[in-house]
Amino acid sequence: MMLTRRLSLALFALPFAAAAQTEEALRTAIRDAVGDKPTTDGGITLRVPALAENGGQVPLGIVVESPMTAQDYVTAIHVFATRNPTPGIASFRLTPMLARAEVQTRIRLAEDQRLIVLAETSTGRVLRASAELRVGAGGCLS
């Protein structure tokens, strides 16, 4: 009885322990990227499929509203996964020589999850956007 209860407790606790670790890793990754600066929602358009059949090659388009002048431009775009084995996807460093604050790439996602994108501007702002994606076949461990 005791053993059974311990086993069921362990089985119950395991997924939550794993989720807590992901949350902590995500917070650390975001802090490493932009520090503790406050973020503002909006100003970023994310182009992703609602359902990614192949989690190994998920197209991602990011467009940040910015004049991209020497005085006011997007300096960096950071992309995070909330439910991959590790949260980091990529960080892009931009310059005003780019015509617009737009990057397209392909990413891998392990399972259904939310994608978080942060954009830093030369004026000191941090913009934030997120998107929910469903993933057919996971693209990280298979």
Binding site: G56, V103, R108
Partner: peptide, 25 residues
Amino acid sequence: LNGETLLSADFQNGTATNPYHVFFV
């Protein structure tokens, strides 16, 4: 671009096989 940094990307685990990037100048 003409010797000056235009763009850079730092990759972590979530960047897919055969990295593909599009940008505009």
